Computed example of a mutant assay.
Amino acid sequence: MDWQSLVREFVTLFVVIDPVGSIPVFLYATASIPKRLHKTFALRAVLAAAAVLAFFLVAGQLLLEAIGLRLGAFQIAGGIVLFLFALSMIFGEAKPETEIEEAENEDLSGAVFPLAIPSIASPGAILAVVILTDNHETAIAEQAATAGLLAVVLLITLLILLLAGRIVKLIGRTGASVVSRVMGLILATVAVDAVLQGLEQVGVLKLAAAPF
C-alpha cells in the first residue's frame, strides 16, 4: 500500500469516526460522573467502539458473502448511505446535537450509548471499515495496515476525549458543530468515490466507457 492510499484511508476513517464531533456527546455523558472517572469512561467507550469496528472489519465481508452479496454491490449501497449520512451532517442537525438529543429522550448515558455507539462506531464508520477491506482485492498486509490506521484514529479519539474539556473551551460547541459539517463535506466526496469504485467493480463503468 502506497502512502497516498494510506492517507486516503486515514482521512476516510477519521472523517466517519469524527473524534471532534464526539466531544459534546462525551461531555453530556460524563456530566453526572466524577472527574476522576472520566479517563476510565473514555477508555471503555473507545474500547467498545474498537470491538464493534474490528468485528465488522474482520467479518463484515464474510457475512455479505455468506448471504450471496458481492462487495461491489455493498460498496455502491454503502457509498449511497455514507452520502446520505454526509448530507445529514452538512444540512441537518449537527452530529453531537442529534446524539445528545437521543440520549436525553431515552434518558440513557454511558460509555456504550451514546458515546461508543452511535457516536464513535457510527453506521458510517461500520460501512467504511467493510468497504476498505476487500478480501479479494487487498492483501492481508494491506488489511492489517487498515486495521492499524483504525487503531491510530481510535487512539486519537481517546486523546481528544481526554482533552475534551480544554478543547470545548477553545472552540466551543458551535466550533465542534462547524467541524462536524466540514467533515460531512469530505465524507460526501469519499462516498461518491466509493460508489464509482463499486460501479467499476461490477463492470458498469467499463461497459459505459467502452463506446468511447
Rank of each mutant, 00 (worst) to 15 (best):
S177G: 11
E65V: 00
L170G: 07
L57P: 04
D107G: 15
G184E: 13
A144M: 05
T30D: 11
A103Y: 05
K95L: 10
A141D: 03
I131W: 15
Q143R: 15
V179S: 01
T98Y: 11
A103M: 06
L57A: 14
A194M: 14
F91K: 05
T157A: 12
H136R: 13
A66F: 10
T157K: 13
A45H: 08
L27F: 00
P96R: 11
D134M: 10
I140S: 04
P96Y: 07
E9G: 07
I186T: 03
P114W: 01
T40P: 06
P118H: 05
M89P: 05
A188F: 00
L196T: 06
T146W: 07
A141Y: 01
I126V: 11
L185T: 06
I140Q: 03
G72W: 05
T12D: 13
I126K: 02
L87Y: 03
G72A: 11
A116K: 08
A191T: 07
L150A: 02
A94I: 02
G198Q: 08
T146F: 08
S122Q: 09
N135E: 04
T189G: 12
G110S: 08
A31R: 15
A147W: 00
A145P: 00
L161F: 11
T138Y: 12
E106G: 06
I140H: 02
K39Y: 00
I156R: 14
E137V: 08
L185P: 05
G79N: 06
L6A: 11
M1H: 11
P96I: 06
I160G: 01
F55Q: 04
F14A: 15
P123L: 09
L6R: 01
E65S: 04
L82W: 01
V25G: 08
D193M: 11
V192P: 06
I160N: 01
V20Q: 10
I117H: 12
L62K: 14
V204I: 15
I171H: 13
D134G: 11
Q61H: 09
R181W: 10
L127M: 12
A210E: 15
V178E: 08
A176F: 02
A29T: 13
Q143Y: 00
A77K: 10
A49T: 05
L207S: 14
D107T: 11
F113H: 14
A50L: 13
V16N: 13
L115K: 13
Q61S: 08
L127W: 06
A209H: 07
I90D: 10
L170T: 12
I186M: 09
F113V: 13
E101T: 09
E102I: 04
V11F: 12
A86V: 00
V11E: 11
L185K: 05
S22E: 02
V58W: 15
L187D: 01
L64H: 09
Y28W: 09
L161I: 06
A145K: 00
K95Y: 03
A147C: 00
R166Y: 03
P114T: 02
L205I: 14
F55I: 06
F74I: 09
R8N: 10
L87D: 02
V195L: 09
P34A: 06
R166I: 02
A139F: 01
A209N: 08
L53W: 09
L132V: 00
L205Q: 13
I23N: 09
I100F: 07
L187K: 00
R70Y: 08
